[in-house]
Amino acid sequence: MKKSRRFLLLVLLGISILVLTSCGKEERIVLNVYNWGDYIDESVIKTFEKQFKIKVNYDTFSTNEDMYVKIKSGGGNYDVLFPSDYAVKRMINEGMLHKLDFDNIPNYQYIEDRFKNLDYDPENEYSIPYMWGTVGILYNQTMVSKPVTSWRILWDEEYKKQILMLDSQRDSIGITLKMLGYSMNTKNYDQLEAAKQALIKQKPLVLAYVGDDVKDKMISGEAALAVVWSGDAVFMMRENSDLRFALPEEGTNLWFDAMVIPSTSKHKAEAEKFINFLCEPEIAFKNTDYIGYSTPHSEAKKRLDPELLNDKAAYPSDEELANSEIFKDLSSFMKDYDRIWTEVKAD
């Protein structure tokens, strides 16, 4: 009898704590932000919290697909997301995003015009670009004597077992399509079949299909060539001075990560405040400087170290990007890319 009374007391105590704390939370709005891993200067978040008296709950993902699947299945309850171009497009098509109220985001004026009204959001109603970049070949100049100008070098027998490929379906199939002279967004089965055969032929030369561990491997000189994202390349070249970055002549993938508000968000006004805050010149500069990717923000760019601005990896010229493409949303055709990638990797 005594025991059960104590138990009851405990339960009551537990309930009252829950009720009291949840009351406390009501006073302060909590903004749930979902971004790529290591993709913001964390001090920026603290500044925002202080300035606007809004608490930020910061969470990270590692691929667009990861993020998309989570939002789609109703998880998370996020207010601000940072998807890439084709994921933005897909979410717009599926009605998953709020239209932004640009009166609340005056700092949009700082975004360079060439980053506005892009294919994935032609009227620029839903998204504001955050960072952009490319995919290229990072190579160790002490190990690679041939000039790196084409994706074909990743098929060169001389570098057998010294090549690291990205373990990412769209990127790896995409660059193969580019090498063969096709579009990265193709839905043509013959072209995809050709890409598959090329990738299977390449497999014996590949040391591994990697994700983020490419950084460790290239910095320590484990491999000679790797397919990497431009911002990661900037980081790795800082760590190992033997590394060089090249954008192949066949063209590559030009990508943009943008800030959007999912339609499930209950704090749209606050989310817009947050986006506007990230577009403030000083804040945008801080983030760009920390992350190492390329910024679409004119004021932030002006404040960057001129050395970085001249770095072809971070800020390639228009000619170098001439043949490049932006990923389009493949929606259900993605399954066919997945099948090809499975066949390559499982072969």
Binding site: T63, E65, D66, Y68, V69, K72, D167, Q169, K203, V206, L207, A208, Y209, V210, D213, M334, K335, D338, T342, K345, A346
Partner: peptide, 25 residues
């Protein structure tokens, strides 16, 4: 298999992970 096999030896676990996290199938 992903860390030590470098993604070259797809096992059934990798296949399942891929369907849920990347393809969303």
């Amino acid at each position: 298999s992903r860390l030590l096999g470098g993604g070259q030896f797809t096992l059934i676990g990798n296949l399942i992970e891929q369907q849920f996290l990347y393809v969303g199938d």
